[in-house]
Each structure stands twice: as C-alpha cells, then as structure tokens.
Design a protein around this nucleic acid. Structure first.
Lengths: 205, 205
DNA sequence: AGTGTAACTTGACTTAAGTCAAGGAATATA
DNA sequence: TATATTCCTTGACTTAAGTCAAGTTACACT
C-alpha cells in the first residue's frame, strides 16, 4: 500500500504555489485532482454576500478534488494555498487510463474514497449532536483515540476548531473553561490533556 | 451505465427481510454490502444510554455498507428493515474479484463513492449553517432545485426532517410557520410550496 | 528587548432554540 | 363509524449559545 502510493505519486505532475495563490476557482473545469506534498491548501465557497466560507483544509498527505473529478465536471469551490505549497496534479485522463489497466490503482482510489466517506459520516454525526459541549467532547475523544496520547495538540487555530464543530471561538473558549472546571480536561494553549475520558464519554448522552 | 448497474446487480444475492428485522448489528464483520430493491432500511447507532440514534435511511436504488466493506472489517452501526424489504447482498470477495478483472465495475464503485462524498459534503455544509431557519432554507432550496417543481413533497416525517437538519420537531414546526408568515413558503401537510426562492436564498446570509 | 499584530479570553447582554406539557389533526384499526 | 395511535402544532418556560465590546496573552519581526 505504501509502495502503491509511491507509484501513484509518480503519475502526478509537481506544481508549486505561493502563499495565497489560487489553485482553482469555483466553476473551473475539473480535469484533474491534487495531492498535497507540503504546505497547506484551503477550500472555500462564496456565499451570497460574496463572503468566503471555508469548507476544509488539506495538509501534506491529503488528496483533494478527486471526488469531484470522478463525478462532476466543474469544481464547486475555490482552492487556495495558505502558505507556500507543493502539490502533485493528476490529470483525469491519465488517472482513468491507469485505473482501467491496473486494478490495484482502482482499488487504491476506491479505498481512498471509502475512507473519505467514513470520515465525512463521523463529521456529520458530530455536527448532529445537540450541544456545543457534546460536539466538543466528541471531537476531543476522537482525537484522543487517534493519537494514542492523553495530550492532544491542536493543529489549527481555535477559531477554526470552533467553526469545525459548528460554533464560534467565544463559545468554544467558555466551553473549554467549563470542562476544565468540571475536571474533564486541562488546557494549555493548543494542548488539551484528557483527565477523565470516561466522564467525557458520558457527556455524549 | 444503466446496463452496468444491471450487470452489477446480477452479482448480488437476493435477500428478504420482514418489518423490523435486523440486517446486521454493530460489530458484525463486514463481509459484504447491500443494495435496496424495495422497502426501506434504517441505519442507527446506540449511544451510551443504549438509546438508538438514527444515522440514515436507505430507499430503493441505494447501496449501503460499501464504504465500510472497502476499508474496515466491522460494521460500526445497526441496519434494520423499516418495512418488508428486499435487498441484494454483494459479498466482499465476489466484488473484489470483479473489480480486479473488470475496470468498468471498478469505475462504477469509484463513481458511487465519489457521489456519496459529494452528498455528504453538502450535508455538512448545511449542518454548519448557524440557525435552524438557515438550515431549513437550505434544505428547501436543495429540494426545490432537484425536483424541478415549486412544490416539494416530503418523503419523510417532520420529526425526521427536523433531525436531519439538526433540530427537533417543535422548532421545525415554529420555523415553518414563521417562514409562511414571512411569505417565503406555504405549507400543507407534507407539501411545501416555494413562494419566493430569491428571498429564501438571501436567508443563507 | 520592544512593538505590533493576531489569537484568545472574558463579561454583559440578547436571541435562538430546546424542554415540558397539552391539545389537535390525520391516519390507521377495529 | 368509532376509537386508538401516531404525527404534528402550540404555549409557557428555561437554557444554550450567539453578539458586541473590551481586555489579555502569545507570537512574530525588526
């Protein structure tokens, strides 16, 4: 699988983008997708007031745009480099050719997409929880399980975390404080130490 | 594509389930996935109190379980027939064999999964909207665009709609009423008539 | 180290939305 | 047609969470 990824990466063309540079605009024809080598990419939409609404951020090791390329012909959102970023670009044609002649490549993308579905489903379940506190607890627990450590280190700003659990930074702040007072966690900057994972789980009703 | 689906359906084994019958339990090994021929299936989890939390409902024409089968080995949730239901069951082995020898089948599942990703992403964007009113507006607009008609007919109970936009039936009720008073829509039972789609769009901020 | 900016926290206040409880439709069942 | 059940709506109330505004703290850069 690791070698497969290495092989697949060889099918891509290296591209470099400067900070704030646009990779594609909403409406651009989706004739290929991307893999982040280094840096960071953000995907966002424009709402009716022309305000940007961030959808997701992609970090090294992430593919993006492939779902769109496989089913639609235009990108529905914008992609912009957050910092200097290197990507691999995979053209639709190349990839389809390789999928057709090498089943292991087909399987690779099947499992890539399947994993995305699972992740997205989890995200939805989180967002469907009623209170911010529950969604935050869910987030902390999921990180806690992924990283095997008791200490979670956020790889994003708190505003971003807030948005990703469907709230705003002020509310997140208060919620973290409250959870500290309830002895569930301990917060130091971007480090969250899980003190009582059992009680934390009980929060999820 | 239509023929491809027909061919693929031939790879499945017909199964029939009575009302309320369980198709699989959380934790069962995922050695295959399903296609709904007729009837309805609901997927749900158990929370810590042992209360059922519905994740999604599947109707005729829907595949389910395939993402899990492609990446994990156990189902994370329960599946239950809502009414008498006929499904096709596709065993993991059979499907993988066919994927490996027929690229068009691989492509079929790639596009199936890619479409799911797109749908899930839309769902997330909806849930991230701040107010219930916005999420409801979003829901109505998306239905309005899919069905080309001004009249949307809900194919679910209002409780279910409420949950799917992350709220409860009482709030949904009040929200629908308010939107009627604001002359955006007209509600008669499960029919929603869009009266002013422009204003409705402006609701999304 | 000093200064400036961005990130985060806190407080006071307002509004949205959930809970509980009751009552009406609508639909199914006898 | 009556009766039961499920579904939906409404009201009164409480609580959660958003807004606005004012500080802190942390960090980045000369």
């Amino acid at each position: 699988m690791k070698d497969l990824l290495t092989d697949i990466k060889k099918l891509g063309r290296i591209q470099a983008f400067g900070k704030d540079e646009i990779l594609f605009n909403a409406g651009d024809s989706a004739n290929g997708f991307y893999y982040v080598q280094s840096g960071e990419v953000r995907i966002f939409r424009m709402d009716y007031q022309g305000k940007e609404v961030e959808v997701v951020r992609l970090n090294p090791g992430d593919f993006f745009g492939e779902a769109v390329v496989f089913v639609a012909d235009k990108f529905p959102a914008f992609a912009q480099a957050v910092m200097n970023t290197k990507t691999l670009f995979f053209s639709k044609n190349t990839i389809f050719q390789h999928i057709d002649k090498d089943p292991s490549i087909a399987r690779f993308f099947i499992s890539l997409l399947a994993r995305k579905c699972i992740v997205l489903n989890k995200r939805i379940e989180t967002l469907e929880l009623r209170t911010v506190r529950q969604r935050l607890a869910q987030f902390i627990l999921s990180q806690y399980q992924e990283q095997k450590s008791e200490v979670i280190v956020l790889n994003m700003k708190k505003v971003e975390l807030a948005r990703s659990i469907g709230t705003i930074s002020e509310t997140l702040s208060r919620c973290l404080k409250q959870m500290q007072e309830d002895n569930l966690i301990e917060v130091h900057g971007r480090e969250i130490r899980v003190k009582d994972s059992v009680k934390l789980k009980q929060e999820l009703l």
